[in-house]
Design a protein around this nucleic acid. Structure first.
Lengths: 238, 238
DNA sequence: GAGTGGTCTAGACCACGAC
DNA sequence: TCGTGGTCTAGACCACTCG
């Protein structure tokens, strides 16, 4: 390839040109593209600049890179949806609605097996802190929060006052998490949940289960029960 | 700050040290951290290296950066959940199950208003291609795909044979998308959907609605109805 | 062994935006 | 105005991995 007439000296312009060639099928899925040094020569820029552009494309899954074998156009460009997980209070306030919060209970109790497993609790009958609360938007139930907190990972939780501040916020300030897992599913809501959310029994609810880790162990696992009609929205890339 | 005894000369080690200080509350939420030049001096590395580390932290939402005002620890570290959206066939095969596919119908029809809106169709009664299909895992219904394709964006779809290849795959090969939107919700399934998915009416289903754009216009919008019990799983970061 | 991407450096200039 | 992050360059060395 001869050098281009006009050189591309920003990594964004290099990225755009590479994307154009991929979309125009000049470089086809599964095929290799020229190496960084060659592209730098063609585009009239430093190799570092090409590297930055291709690295960004690799992060979003458009191309795949391997040392020695080079860069190729991804065969099955996976789409990605990125959900932002804000504080529930922020989520409600950002909709321009008034936030409210009702604590149902907060007490130490034997963890059911699903919770013991998620929190990595060893013995049978180990206790954890159970917090049940309803978040309100404009006075109406918005989401039910059913949370278990690992007391060996966040002992301070026993002395926290969850009537004043939701467990959601207390944890964010006192035990920030490093990683975790989110599971989304749909289910018919049970009698107890229906009562707390002001729903008919067996109404279809959206359930989010989040388990989060601190330094090296699980800190908390929470089930969020959203009322029917709730929509999780996210942009889609690739 | 005096230079460290041992210098940190990889961007990963700089990132780790910065993270450590944030987690140890040496640098607190909302507060500014030293500028790149100072950190580079302290760590004994080039400013470029510090830049790379802080840029990565900014991308994952741990810090916020602005020219002139500098870098500060994010006040509300939003968590992010990243879902990968594979082909449905791959999703099933990756579970080690046998993939099957049944086309219910594929015909040009007047788009209902929700679809016309999503696809950006102008006039009333504009037609689009409607494709209804069931994806099977081990012979059992797995998900119902209710798709509408914008014929002005993908005219070739009229001549495609959707009995042999799902619309999902045809579109990925013939009209790759650039961006879009994903909406997740729960609902009680209707009579028609229940029959196709082999469910009782009003069973709680998980609904994914994806609308995707090509160069400059919407290409397709699809509703996926997943059977009760289906779980969407994703890692959680920050 | 040799080719490729991954990264570091030192220096430079620029663009944004708070003051 | 001017400090801060954003980026480019040219050169260098290293790490992985294929043949």
């Amino acid at each position: 390839m001869p050098p281009l007439a006009t050189s591309l000296n920003t990594w964004q312009s290099v990225q755009t040109e590479v994307l154009r060639r991929i979309r125009a099928r000049i470089w086809k899925p599964g095929e290799p593209i020229p190496n960084e040094a060659d592209l730098a020569r063609e585009f009239g820029c430093a190799r570092t600049t090409v590297n930055r552009a291709l690295r960004a494309l690799a992060e979003s899954g458009i191309v795949e890179r391997k040392r020695k074998s080079g860069t190729r156009v991804a065969l099955h460009p996976v789409g990605r949806a990125v959900f932002e997980i804000p504080l529930i209070r922020k989520e409600i306030e950002d909709q321009g609605r008034r936030y409210g919060y009702t604590l149902v209970c907060a007490n130490e109790a034997a963890a059911p097996s699903r919770v013991a497993y998620a929190l990595g609790l060893k013995g049978d009958g180990t206790t954890a802190l159970h917090v049940l609360a309803v978040h309100l938007a404009d006075g109406q139930p918005y989401v039910l929060e059913d949370r278990w907190i690992n007391l060996s990972a966040a002992p301070g939780a026993l002395r926290a006052d969850f009537t004043a501040q939701s467990a959601n916020e207390w944890l964010l300030e006192n035990a920030p998490y490093i990683g975790g897992e989110l599971v989304i599913s749909a289910a018919a809501c049970g009698e107890a949940e229906a009562a707390l959310l002001d729903l008919k029994e067996a109404a279809p609810v959206l359930i989010l289960e989040r388990t989060t880790w601190g330094e090296n162990r699980p800190v908390t696992t929470v089930r969020l029960w959203y009322r029917p009609g709730h929509r999780l929205i996210s942009p889609l890339v690739s």
